[in-house]
Write a protein that binds this DNA or RNA. Structure first.
Length: 260
DNA sequence: ATGCCGACAGGATGTCGA
């Protein structure tokens, strides 16, 4: 089963680009982040025409996540538990049938958290703590689990072009990195790092300052696997070339192949 | 030191992203 994640930076502005990639990559399941559309305005028809079922948790203007699956999904849960009063659409989870049992998949859009020293940074850390708590509960199910999306954390200095340039950014704060480590240390495997130790492999390049041309990127889109999913991991790939196309998202797709 | 670019809402330009 090929399972992908992609922060598309507006599904409506990106529809042509996204459809082209879906036709080429043919993922069985794909998680989108930053769809920037409501459930009502999500262009489901374009994806249904390619054979996908859509589970959408959207909101107007900002955020918004979705899961597309060729096979019908079960147990669709459009929110992260906890955080009462939090109305950001940043999490959706569903169960997808495979050839040899089910896989639980979550599309995650963690808060950016900039600037540091503000309520936005506190919100980021609190949100990641909620994710940790939920991940602990899901891991107790002892089933193949794929937590994937724009986690908005640079895990190590090897995952950015210039650690100094990110020193004062929320994405590279010690507290942010520790929050991601705590989630991973519950027993989740970074699928990309399980397949490659190569440094400077990025999933995001800023639109500004010629970041793409200079390869000034960061790796912030992650695929985290439960032991039952990691045992079935065959490969994990960053579709870097997509960033060089017309009208690109600032993020590129990341996908893994699981023997499920 | 700051903006650079891009999407959005709305109808100019401020907010947000990372």
């Amino acid at each position: 089963m090929k399972i992908a994640t992609w922060n598309v930076n507006s599904v409506k502005a990106r529809l042509e680009t996204v459809v082209q990639w879906l036709k080429e990559a043919e993922p069985d399941v794909v998680c989108f982040q930053e769809i920037k559309s409501t459930d009502e305005t999500f262009p489901a028809e374009a994806f249904e025409a390619l054979g996908y079922n859509c589970a959408v948790h959207g909101q107007k203007t900002y955020n918004g996540v979705a899961i597309l699956s060729k096979r019908p999904m079960e147990d669709v849960t459009p929110r992260l538990p906890g955080g009462d009063g939090d109305d950001h659409a940043r999490y959706i989870e569903a169960v997808v049938p495979g050839d040899h049992g089910v896989v639980r998949v979550a599309s995650i859009y963690a808060p950016n958290g900039n600037p540091i020293g503000t309520d936005k940074f506190k919100y980021k850390l609190a949100w990641l703590e909620r994710l940790e708590k939920h991940a602990r509960e899901l891991l107790a199910l002892e089933e193949p689990l794929v937590l994937m999306g724009d986690i908005n954390v640079i895990p190590t200095p090897d995952d950015c072009y210039d650690p100094k340039a990110w020193m004062n950014d929320a994405l590279f704060q010690p507290e942010s990195r520790a929050a991601l480590r705590r989630i991973e240390f519950l027993g989740l495997t970074d699928a990309f790092r399980a397949c490659s130790a190569e440094p400077q492999q990025y999933t995001f390049w800023d639109y500004q300052a010629g970041a793409w041309q200079k390869d000034h990127g960061i790796r912030i889109d992650h695929i985290l696997l439960s032991p039952q999913a990691a045992d079935r991991l065959k490969t994990c790939v960053i579709d870097k070339h997509v960033r060089g196309r017309e009208k690109p998202s600032d993020h590129v797709p990341v996908w893994c192949e699981l023997a499920v």
